[in-house]
Amino acid sequence: MHIVDGALSNPVVAAGVVLAVGGLAQGLRKLPMEKIPVAGVLSATFFVASLIHVPIGPSSVHLIMNGLAGLVLGWAAFPALFVGLLLQAVFFGFGGLTVLGVNTVVIAGPAVIVGLLLGGRIQNSPTRAAAIWAGLGGGLAIALTTAFVAIALALTGDEFLPAAKLVFLAHIPVIVIEALLTGAAVYLAKQVKPELFDDLQGAVR
């Protein structure tokens, strides 16, 4: 979900830039140089994950997985997802330049919220419970992302209101799919490498 240049009003764009700069500053503060390789490789992982298309009925959706990014990276998810969005805008033409701030807040904001809310639970729960919490987190992140997009559009003007509502409804299947995938991903990660979440929570967060 990338908003394009020219769609939003100037105050919304400016607010997006301010929030994104604040989030980046906070995220980088939680990211010592020692942890840059981990964060960079994970940032690349989420970039590749966003290229995966999952079938849904006759159509397909591409993954966002920002909930999972938040659960693994905590605050560091903010700069990590920003880098992905920057690369997508510059090399793929997805999104835009002036709206980069808004797009970052829309994708990375929910990631950090989910990470802060549920990160500890994922860390301490047994595998099955962690997978269920992660599924909730994955769904919540996409729900928040869609809600943020709707808010940005609604603040721009009333003419976007019907579209914003329809976009939210249309994303309910995506919320379900992301929830299922995030839950399964955490289930596997907890079984194969239980310390995966501990490692990063202690250091990157």
Binding site: L68, L181, Y187, V192
Partner: peptide, 16 residues
């Protein structure tokens, strides 16, 4: 969906 989830999880593990 479960298989794709495991795929992403496996990528996460290998990346780490």
């Amino acid at each position: 969906y479960r298989s794709f989830g495991y795929l992403v999880g496996m990528m996460l593990v290998r990346s780490m």
